[in-house]
Computed example of a mutant assay.
Amino acid sequence: MVRKSYSGVVATVPVSIPYERYSIESAHWWIGRALRALAQGAGISHREIDGFAMASFSTAPDSAIGLTQHLGLSPRWLDHIPMGGVSGILSLRRAARAVQAGDADIVACVAGDTNQVDTFRRTLENFSRFAQDAAYPYGAGGANASFALIARHYMDRFGARREDFGKLCVAQRTNALRNPNALMKKPLTLEQYMNARPIADPIHLFDCVMPCAGAEGFLVMREETARSLGLPSARILSIIERHHAFSDDAVQYRGGWARDIGELYSMAGISQDAIDVVQTYDDYPVISMMQFEDLGFCGKGEGPDFVRSHSFEIDGSFPHNTSGGQLSAGQAGAAGGHLGIVECIRQVMGLAGPTQVEGAKLGLASGFGMINYDRGLSSGAVIFWGETT
């Protein structure tokens, strides 16, 4: 089946609310700050935003509908997408289709979470039925053990080494040092990475993201609307999403991207070689390596050699996670799934400031979310082309 393109729809006004390690504020407060920044960045009233897509782990018992009253919105299109690291891709895709259909003119896609003293524990306790029944009661402290299983399986199958994962982490820290909003402010060496304390073998300290508070957001609208507002924008060339792919894999070693890679590039009308900057979802470096393969930058099982033969800094041979990604900027809950999209929009519009990749016009951002015991259930990706006005 030939999918309808996203022609005429753009993303614009990428905003990041600077992260804090801990916060006494609510998720509502963080999301409200992002919404205000979106309205101010577009030069409009927040009441002109007639679509709202929200992602968060910590607004409960409120959902998106509750926040419309908290934030003074009256949208005619509303979505609440509680799907973690893939929420940004799904919000973008649904918002783009809503704009194409005329169901909304300006959609705010916002994700934000707080990180109070007990927030992370409560999130783990209520993350999923699996977590409630089969992991948390036995003392499992979140995703580390699950990703340790995935990482060890990947290493045994394809010959990846901790040094390969470390190369990605060190490069992202180097990038983060140019991002004023990144929480990690100190350089990281490969020696420090290798000597860091183990968390769940083979996962060590610097393989893990730092939970924090913050918010990310962007607007989706028609191209002519952006031009009328004088806004630079990023054209949406293609988007894919897939859930529960490759269920026969005993332990996950590939994601849904591999099922839909042909559509991703054919709809965009480009090959992967044309991409200037890549933002993968990086809750752990093994997942970034998996995405290099599944997104077509190398073959399955070739991720370790791909990492060994490239550099991943902003001025490297394969600019990757230029903001520092979640591993060095921080993971503000569900906003982690929007972080790469926001950075990708900035990059292709030439507005990334100190993290800008010279000449970047085509960017790819991907999402990955909702980890179960041995696999993440959801994946997605978007390709942007930048245009300034």
Rank of each mutant, 00 (worst) to 15 (best):
T68H: 05
G72V: 11
A60T: 15
W77N: 11
I81H: 02
L67S: 07
L71E: 08
P75M: 13
I89G: 02
T68P: 00
L71D: 12
V86W: 00
G85P: 06
S87G: 10
I81G: 02
S63G: 15
M83K: 14
P82C: 07
L90F: 03
D79Q: 10
H70A: 15
D79V: 15
R76M: 12
G72Q: 06
G72S: 08
A64V: 11
H80W: 11
M83N: 14
D62Y: 09
I81C: 01
T68M: 02
P61M: 14
L67K: 06
L90E: 08
G66S: 03
M83F: 09
S63V: 09
Q69W: 06
I81K: 00
L78N: 05
I81P: 01
G72R: 03
I89Y: 03
I81F: 03
A64S: 14
T68I: 08
S87D: 01
Q69G: 12
S87T: 06
L71H: 12
G72H: 11
I65G: 12
A64I: 10
V86K: 00
L67F: 07
H70V: 15
L78Q: 00
G66W: 02
S87H: 11
L73E: 02
S91L: 13
A64H: 05
S87E: 04
S91P: 02
P82H: 00
M83C: 13
L71Q: 05
G72T: 11
G84A: 09
T68V: 11
L73T: 01
R76H: 14
L90W: 05
S91F: 02
W77P: 09
P61C: 10
S63W: 01
L90I: 15
L67E: 10
S63I: 14
W77I: 05
G84W: 00
D79F: 07
H70P: 01
R76T: 04
P61H: 14
D79P: 07
H80K: 01
